[in-house]
Design a protein around this nucleic acid. Structure first.
Length: 882
RNA sequence: GGGGUUAUAGCUCAGUUGGUUAGAGCGCUUCGUUGACAUCGAAGAGGUCUGCAGUUCGAGUCUGCCUAACCCCACCA
């Protein structure tokens, strides 16, 4: 084999591209519908077409790819549906920015031309994010790649909109909604981020008409005074009861305002009197409806003051605030300005302070949809992992408000509603050109839908719905949805509602939630902070496997994690370790015939031990994958490969490999190395797809690729507790000898004479058959076995393992003081432990109630420690006699 | 105002149904180029698991409270 020339350092760059193309060329990612095969499907959370791969994507897609690759190896008909999202506002902004470089605005182009430009942009740059996903190793079925604005998805959107409209679950209304003056569009409630900010509470007095009395009201937004149409007080408030029904004179404007009574007003807050601006505040809007107040719009869509604002018209809202406060003060209406911290809503996308505004928008009636969506989760049909997100989800749905779905932008799914001058509104599956009622010309609603509207349909729109396709039949509901907790409301909840409404079935069985990847100080990675780490940079420098492994280890589902380059290096080191262990195996596989199956009795203790550890690792890794504990599964593999396979087994196999005389022994060692390595590679493959493929292809193997090789099954017959127990004592002994050698600074090249004495014949036999391990791994030479009744050696260091007394005679005299201190320390530990155990065993409650195996375990430990204590005591007595 | 998360070694974190002398990585100390690997190996130091109380034969693990940090939701002007 030519593998001898493989570099000692694993170089991901030279292998990753090669294998990804190989997988694609062999069509290994593609899933055909095979009705008789058990399906496993995931739809990707579609990244924005404008997006660049960030750490969040890297984590999210690594988790999905691990699940997909694992299930594929298990033999499921596995579909990972990829695609991208048209990302309405984000993409529109992106293209507008590009046009702005040439001094062109979207209005210069007009709607149709602009949308053409966006499509051009999409065709040119839209595949950037998917290319980046490929470099991560994502095994998506790219032949099925979808886009939320492609024909199929658009048809699904149209069908759902019209159907909900027909059911009365979509309606149009003049209501108060959140408005972003910068984006110039309405927003849904969850697109508004509230931030507690110090502000002012302005107290302004309004004079009672025909009286000297004043009522003082408080407001955080004095500019809205211009739109006041009433003042409300609590009906039982003694201070104001006599004024209810009378009127006030609105300062500056001079308008007459009725004083109304409303339960909403909290008499204990502020002055107990509230100014009412129905057009610019959600509560006031409601009260306005109750008291039939007029709505006076004083602000424009772009945040400037409207004509109704009189002399302030045209001013920016904050300019107006300043000017108005100055005027109020000057004219004696301003009573005081208090400091007041309150939550201000900001546009999620551009951080501009949002204004509540009255406008005509389309809404989805949420309550009827929310009820079954809650039920699907509380019944356990859909399970959140971790479970605690269930509560967050249901709390939100319990208090849900209607969803404003119309957006005043151009890029997106156009609302399928047409208006005729005759007053007719037509909502239609097919585009129409004339009014079905009067035959007049119609005009389509200029607005588009909230981007999340199409995302909500993703699990079935990608599979061809509303057609009753074979894909829908086989792959819906999907198996699991993997996403961050930040879009549970935006996306997860809405998919569940839409799935239940239109498929009469849940969209997925599990929702696997992960946290955020933060920077090393725990801060969110963000563009503005400039603290983001580019996953592509990590891939370039360390490889995708390293990035993947780093992302999934050392954290638990649902929790945030921090990014450290040190952790990247640690993962890289692991890859390198595996690489070199594999090189070692390959270099020693000369003459190996993979069809050779060693006979049982040729297995050494080390063979039986590693095979036992291996089969238990299969069980544990598989179990943890089933429970979505991917980090724990990864950690188990790390420990098995490094601490057991590399640190011990390879070292123990060496003598047999180097001795070419005994062909059968050598063949057996080769077989076990090969068997354990190639199966462990399979277990690791979902986590580190590239390096495992590279190594696997070098090993004798069957099949095209490790990624479609069968997932290892635990083999009960390989589990061998006796072998593990015996190995543990031998390892314990080796460590004890190494420790003594280090204690007295024996140079590594120098052998140490070792004398062993055993508590029982059984353990002595185990050692007699395996002394070579002590020779090679502890530099013990010569080794003498003392009979149980023989006198202890003098002038020797002492250690005690389970059932074994270990003596290391010294050429010079032993340092009595140091040796005594060392043994005393050991003694102290033993005494502490023994005290704990005997405390337990003498507790009648423990003996009566603890399970038998727990008691036996404690008793066994007690015997073992007692023995050790006797041995050490003897030795201490001997030392004292010197 | 509601709800949630976290608190374990110097740092970042694991610890799966309660039962091992509580673990890892990084960092630290000492030694090491023995034919896979210095991106490595060997030995070692380092923790009263935030605090208090409770349940239990037994608590890092379950319950309650305290403290601290963080997050989400919410129309008190």
């Amino acid at each position: 084999m030519e593998e001898k020339n493989i570099s000692t350092v694993y170089d991901p760059q030279s292998v990753e591209k090669k294998w990804y193309s190989f997988w694609e060329e062999n069509n290994l990612f593609h899933a055909e519908v095979e009705a008789d095969k058990q399906p496993f499907s995931i739809v990707i959370p579609p990244p924005n077409v404008t997006g660049q791969l960030h750490m969040g994507h890297a984590l999210d897609n690594t988790l999905q790819d691990i699940l997909i690759r694992w299930r594929r190896m298990q033999g499921y008909n596995t579909l990972w549906m990829p695609g991208t999202d048209h990302a309405g506002i984000a993409t529109q902004i992106k293209v507008e920015e590009m046009l702005a470089q040439d001094g062109v605005s979207r209005y210069d182009l007009g709607r149709d031309e602009f949308i053409k430009k966006v499509w051009e942009w999409k065709h040119q740059y839209g595949s950037r994010i998917t290319t980046q996903l490929k470099s991560l190793g994502a095994s998506c079925d790219w032949q099925r790649e979808r886009f939320t604005m492609d024909e199929g998805c658009s048809q699904a959107v149209r069908e759902v909109f019209v159907s909900l409209y027909e059911k009365g679950l979509i309606y149009q209304g003049n209501r108060i909604t959140n408005w972003c003056p910068r984006c110039n569009t309405a927003l849904s409630d969850i697109e508004v981020e509230h931030e507690e900010k110090p502000g002012n509470l302005f107290h302004v007095r309004y004079q009672v008409e025909g009286s000297d009395e004043y009522i003082t009201v408080a407001t955080t937004r004095p500019e809205t005074i211009l739109g006041d149409t009433a003042v409300a007080v609590h009906p039982e408030d003694a201070r104001y009861k006599h004024l209810i029904g009378r009127s006030l004179i609105l300062p500056i404007v001079g308008r007459s305002l009725p004083i109304v009574a409303d339960e909403y007003v909290d008499p204990s807050f502020g002055t107990g009197a509230v100014k009412i601006t129905p057009a610019h505040d959600p509560n006031d809007f409601e009260m306005g409806l109750r008291h039939e107040l007029t709505q006076i719009v004083v602000m424009n869509a772009d945040g400037t003051m409207a004509d109704n604002a009189g002399k302030y018209a045209g001013m920016d809202r904050y300019e107006c605030r300043k000017a108005l406060v100055a005027d109020l003060k000057e004219q004696g209406y301003l009573v005081k300005i208090d400091e007041h911290s309150h939550a201000v809503g900001h546009c999620q996308r551009c951080s501009t302070v949002v204004e509540p505004m009255v406008s005509k928008q389309w809404f989805v009636s949420m309550e009827p949809l929310a009820k079954p969506a809650i039920e699907a989760v509380t019944s356990g049909e859909i399970q959140f992992v971790p479970e605690r997100f269930t509560k967050i989800y249901t709390n939100w749905l319990d208090n849900i408000r209607d969803w404003c779905i119309s957006r005043q932008i151009w890029w997106g799914h156009r609302i399928p509603a047409w208006y005729c001058s005759c007053g007719e509104t037509i909502v239609s599956r097919e585009d129409i050109t004339s009014c079905p009622k009067c035959g007049g010309t119609v005009e389509q609603d200029p607005d588009v839908l909230d981007t999340w509207f199409s995302s909500a349909l993703w699990p079935f729109s990608t599979m061809g719905w509303p057609e009753d396709t074979a894909e829908v039949k086989q792959f819906y509901p999907t198996s699991v949805l993997v996403t961050g907790y930040d879009i549970i409301f935006f996306w997860v909840a809405r998919m569940i509602m839409m799935g239940l409404e239109f498929k009469q079935d849940i969209p997925f069985k599990h929702v696997f939630i992960h946290g955020l990847v933060r920077d090393s100080q725990g801060r969110k990675m963000s563009k503005s902070l400039g603290n983001g780490i580019d996953p592509l940079e990590v891939i370039e420098k360390y490889g995708a496997d390293t990035l993947r492994f780093m992302l999934i280890t050392g954290n638990t589902p649902g929790n945030d994690m921090r990014f450290y380059w040190e952790r990247v290096e640690s993962s890289r080191n692991f890859a390198n370790k595996l690489w070199n262990a594999s090189r070692f195996v390959l270099m020693n596989l000369e003459g190996f015939d993979p069809s050779f199956k060693p006979s049982e009795e040729k297995y050494t203790l080390a063979d039986r031990w590693i095979l036992s550890r291996y089969t238990k690792t299969v069980t544990d890794v598989t179990r943890n994958l089933e429970r979505f504990e991917l980090g724990e599964a990864g950690r188990l593999l790390y420990e098995f490969i490094w601490n057991e396979f590399c640190d011990w087994y390879i070292e123990m196999a060496k003598p047999r490999l180097y001795n070419k005389e005994d062909g059968e022994a050598r063949g057996t060692a080769q077989y076990v190395l090969w068997y354990v390595l190639q199966n462990t590679l399979k277990l690791l493959h979902p986590f580190m797809p590239y390096i495992t493929e590279e190594i696997w292809q070098h090993l004798p193997h069957q099949g095209v690729s490790i990624m479609v090789s069968p997932w290892p099954e635990a083999q009960v017959e390989l589990a061998d507790n006796q072998a593990e127990q015996n190995m543990n004592v031998i390892m314990e002994t080796i460590k004890a000898i190494r420790n003594m050698r280090a204690e007295v600074n024996v140079p590594p090249g120098k052998k140490s004479e070792v004398i062993l004495q055993f508590a029982a014949q059984a353990i002595q036999t185990v050692f007699s058959n395996n002394l070579q391990y002590l020779r090679t791994l502890a530099a013990a030479e010569p080794i003498e076995i003392l009979s149980a009744d023989a006198a202890k050696p003098e002038n020797a260091m002492t250690a005690v393992a389970s059932g074994v007394e270990i003596y290391m005679p010294l050429k010079g005299l032993i340092d009595v003081e140091k040796e005594t201190a060392r043994l005393n320390k050991e003694m102290e530990n033993l005494n502490k432990e023994l005290a704990r155990i005997s405390g337990k065993l003498s507790n009648p409650g423990f003996v009566a109630k603890a399970p038998a195996d727990v008691i036996e375990k404690e008793q066994a430990k007690q015997r073992e420690y007692e023995e050790k204590r006797v041995a050490i005591n003897e030795r201490l007595a001997y030392l004292a006699s010197l």
